[in-house]
Simulated scan of single mutants.
Amino acid sequence: MADPKFIVLGSNSFSGATFCDYLAEQGYDVTATSRSAEPHDAQLPYKWQQRPGKVRFEKIDINYDLDALAALLKRERFTHVVNFAAQSMVGQSWDHPDDWMMTNVVSTVRLHVLLRGLDFLDRYVHVTTPEVYGSTEGWVREKTPFNPSTPYAVSRAAGDMSLKTFVDTYQLPAVSTRAANVYGPGQQLYRIIPRTVYAAMTGQKLRLDGGGKSVRVFIDMRDASDATLKIALKGKVGETYHISGYELVSIRELVELILKKLGKSFDECVDVGPDRPGKDAAYMLDSFKLRTELGWQDKVSLDEGISNVISWAERFRNDIPKLDANYIHKA
């Protein structure tokens, strides 16, 4: 078997950029692709320090540039394709559901058609979401039935179900991942942890939907990257793996922890608003399979991970005002 050769789709996403950096840290040369030009260096961990491997970026949009991607795949003969490319904002999917369906279903299925014809492909890693389960009770495993409650979740469920048919019918060597809420240095400012840090550092009010009652598990993206690499190299074809810790926290508790680290109070910094439509109350992913089959374990505690985000925000304090504080939709 040839040495692993990686291409990462959706590399401008927080998860994709961090995974590219993790691969480079492990000594892999990586081809990174995304639909937009690379963002500010503050959001690209692979540009913060020298790594044994290199990251090479190419601008490719799976919605419009599939022929260019096909040519690149066949020219470079990548053994591992890791796909983070998706429309991923939940609340905004109600405004433009057709765009979410286009990227997460139509273009994703077209990608699978392309990949099924590559005889040099060893693994395709399909990065998906626990949103497909809807709100859950208790710790759930990978066979939990789908019960999506937003256009985003519906689009991901459709893409996931389609992929299974490609595995079953064409033996596409695919594995899937579903991770708890990822976070870490470089994450977009409209996500809850960097948004809270930024608001507290700049004296802005943070709007908290529903008062922060929802319960989540937050997983540091470096831990998630370690899991994704293990799944890419050793995951069983056709299987899905949950990437999650077991440290439950409500959004309010999370915000309070961040503000305490920054010497701020909840009442001083937070405005409470109504819940957004279709918001799920809890995700509790049981990562037993990943831990027992592939020997993964999470290493970064939530307390340590938040401190790392604060350190990142302080390092790039002068650059953060140049970054998008709000999600900007791209069709």
Rank of each mutant, 00 (worst) to 15 (best):
V255S: 08
V270T: 01
E268W: 04
L248I: 05
L248R: 15
L254Y: 04
V255E: 05
K261T: 03
R252Y: 02
P274N: 12
S265G: 15
L248T: 09
I251T: 14
S265D: 12
I258E: 03
P277A: 09
K264A: 06
E253S: 14
V272L: 01
V249A: 10
V270N: 02
I258F: 00
E253A: 14
K260C: 02
I258A: 01
V272T: 09
I258D: 02
F266N: 01
E253I: 03
G273A: 14
E253M: 12
S250E: 05
R276H: 09
V270G: 06
S250L: 01
R276M: 09
L248Q: 13
V255C: 13
E253F: 04
P274T: 11
R252W: 02
D275S: 15
E253N: 14
L257F: 04
C269A: 13
L262P: 02
K261H: 07
E268K: 15
I251N: 07
E268V: 08
G278F: 07
G278A: 06
I251Q: 11
P277F: 02
K260I: 02
R252G: 03
E268Q: 15
L257R: 13
L259K: 08
G273R: 14
I251F: 06
V249G: 10
D275M: 15
K260F: 08
L262S: 04
P277K: 12
R276S: 12
K261M: 07
S250H: 07
L254C: 07
D275I: 07
K279M: 14
S250N: 11
E256Q: 14
P274Q: 11
E256N: 08
V255N: 10
K279D: 14
E268M: 13
R252K: 12
E253K: 11
V255A: 11
P274G: 08
G278S: 09
E253H: 08
I258C: 09
G263M: 08
D267Y: 08
K261C: 00
K279C: 10
P277R: 08
L254W: 05
R276E: 11
L254R: 08
R276W: 13
L248V: 04
K264N: 06
L262C: 03
K260A: 10
E256A: 07
L254A: 04
K279E: 11
V270H: 04
L259W: 01
L254E: 03
E253L: 06
G278N: 12
I251P: 00
D271L: 08
G263H: 09
V255R: 13
D271G: 07
S265T: 15
G263T: 10
L262G: 02
K264L: 03
V255L: 09
P274A: 12
D275G: 11
V249D: 07
G263I: 11
D267S: 13
S265L: 05
I258P: 00
P277N: 07
E256F: 02
V270K: 05
V255Y: 00
R252H: 03
C269L: 12
G273D: 06
G263K: 14
P277Y: 06
K279V: 13
V249W: 04
D271Q: 11
V249I: 15
C269T: 15
S265V: 05
I258N: 02
P277H: 06
L257A: 13
K279A: 15
P277L: 05
S265I: 01
P277M: 06
D271R: 11
P274L: 12
K261S: 06
K261R: 13
L254H: 03
